[in-house]
Amino acid sequence: MNIELINICKTFQAELVLKDVSGSFDVHSIAVIGPSGGGKSTLLRIIGGLLTPDSGTLKMDGEIITFSKKYLHSYRRNIGFVFQSRGLFEHLTAMENMLLPLVHAFGMAKSQAIEISSKLFERFGLSDEKNKYPFQLSGGQQQRIAIARAVAVKPKLLLLDEPTSALDPEYTAEVLNMLGELQNDGLKTIIVTHEMGFAKNACEKVVFLANKQIVESGDSSQIFKHPQTAELQLFLNKILEWKV
């Protein structure tokens, strides 16, 4: 799958957040890294059709994404999105959370939806959590269920916005393992993350977003070893300073 960004701009209340962001990426697994407030979430939400850019063009496999209501509605169903936290419906059990998109957005029969959901719960060791509400689940379990819900509909692309940044290290590992497994199955993903280990080892490409633009991008095997720009070097030094 190919994603092309052409001069994407976004302003929030007179504050420029993305400035002429451009680039073309063959997505298998991309990690988006960068300093806080750099516009990573904003860019991801634009790609996910949750936010409309002020100007610029977004293309997916050559097709222009028009940000009209009707188009977006069907577009979003084909893109999975996982939030940093609180991504489950608070009034529904884990199972009901899984069923909702399948039944109400995709019009699937309930019995079939239950079958698909049960398989996913089983695969990711979540069967005991099926009937619990979000407030009864650990952060890691919530995130894994949110990911399971997003992949249940077989999306063309899965977007994740810092899915582990609200979690303890132990839970982080359990979520990243699940993701790695899904990526190995061929799921296309773009993940905004502060987990450099995951970006380096589990993602093919890395995009470094800072100062409202894509400053550097490339293969993950190269970019950490040989960062080209001064900004990325500085960023990596800062981040790796406290590494064990």
């Binding site: 949750l50 979003r76 999105f81 109400h104």
Partner: peptide, 9 residues
């Protein structure tokens, strides 16, 4: 936001 992302009208 979640409702939007899963494609609910």
């Amino acid at each position: 936001e979640v409702a939007k992302s899963i494609g609910l009208t």
